[in-house]
Write a protein that binds this DNA or RNA. Sequence first.
DNA 1: AAGTGGTCTAGACCACTCG
DNA 2: GAGTGGTCTAGACCACTTA
Lengths: 240, 240
Amino acid sequence: MDASEKPLYKQIEDYVLDQIDKGIYTEGEPIPTEVEFCKLFNTSRATVNKALNILAYNGVIYRTAGKGTFVRMYSMDKQMKKLMGFTEQMKMLNVDSSTEIIGYSRVKADRIPKVKELFKLGNDDFIHKIERVRYVEHDPIAVECIHISPKVISNLQVEDIGGSLYKFIEDTIGVKIGSSNFVISAMNATDEIKSMFPCEVNVPLLKYEQETFLMNGVVFEYNEIYYLSNKYQYKGSNFR
Amino acid sequence: MDASEKPLYKQIEDYVLDQIDKGIYTEGEPIPTEVEFCKLFNTSRATVNKALNILAYNGVIYRTAGKGTFVRMYSMDKQMKKLMGFTEQMKMLNVDSSTEIIGYSRVKADRIPKVKELFKLGNDDFIHKIERVRYVEHDPIAVECIHISPKVISNLQVEDIGGSLYKFIEDTIGVKIGSSNFVISAMNATDEIKSMFPCEVNVPLLKYEQETFLMNGVVFEYNEIYYLSNKYQYKGSNFR
DNA sequence: AAGTGGTCTAGACCACTCG
DNA sequence: GAGTGGTCTAGACCACTTA
């Protein structure tokens, strides 16, 4: 495990994913057994077992005791799940995306009681509030209202938030983002939301609310994103 | 591992979840170390490590080498992710739910080309098509259009599909369900959908499309569910 | 009966954090 | 330096599937 940075079980994961990408391991067909991988990587069964079980948990392969390990079928999405921001998501899809900031303000906590309670703020705290428009191929897709806790970031510059907010936080502030909860609903645009869009809004909106936590469990941001329903859909997968 | 049916690492998972539920392990606070769990369950570190890492992957706890293991903060939802049908979901939420079948037919594959292609059917195959209304506390929440592949189930009785479809498949047919992909979008009700609802539809709909796979990767069903947006929201979580 | 993955043991060394 | 989780080894027994 010395020569290479990555742990061995991750290298095995990557190897299997690569073989699937190359079409060497194909859909529905068995891949080598644990013992065979042991010889291939000169390692123990526990390490191979860990690698293959992670891939199985993520839906890449499926395993049956007594039979073997097989490549799963895909159709909509191949990627394993990841917590990603919009900019990162769009880059992965190889689409040209951009963001326009249409407002930045510091709002007294009282004015947004829901967020005040979520962040556990006092009356004298100010919430960072950012309003942005998201474009894909120069076409407006969504408007977004971001609330950031002053407990995590006290000073925020407008230029900090032009691109991926998550990347900024992790790189510049050096705090690791842990998890997020979200709620998706459908709604008609209110007049306030209509005024934020740089175009006519004549379709329903897909509303995506999200609260994001740092690794230590502290709430760091609360977002509301309003997507034009004819231009964005939410995709996901579930596994047993 | 003999006396109890469950593997030891699952028992440890359940124990930790139970301690969190009871408030004995609390948010942000450390839980016992791996070595302490080893003594508590009279087991080896590998087993404890597996249990705690599964909980960490599912966002229940977070771990830092050199520091320890801590309980994460929750706010919207506590449950770990699971692939669940509507009936199972509602039971977990302790809500009274029911389903009314408003139509069952076998439709020639040509009539629904999208589904024909997904199931890889020939021209002479017939797709099982079921239309249901979902109620929560006797209040209509959604209408649903289910398509089941004749390759997986050739004969389907109406009484088979009154409750949880997944439970029926797994129990009666004896085939294990593996994974699903889904797409969520917002839309206005079409006249066809309006006619399926036993009530007025004057809000946008949250559309949930889903394709479900068996363990071996075969597509087994394709669903379209139309939720009244004022009565249902989709909730989820993401983790790094 | 032979082979598969599921589970488990009893060790080990490492990088990291903290006092 | 003591303690933590991260990773790994070299064995083991089991239930299950397939021939």
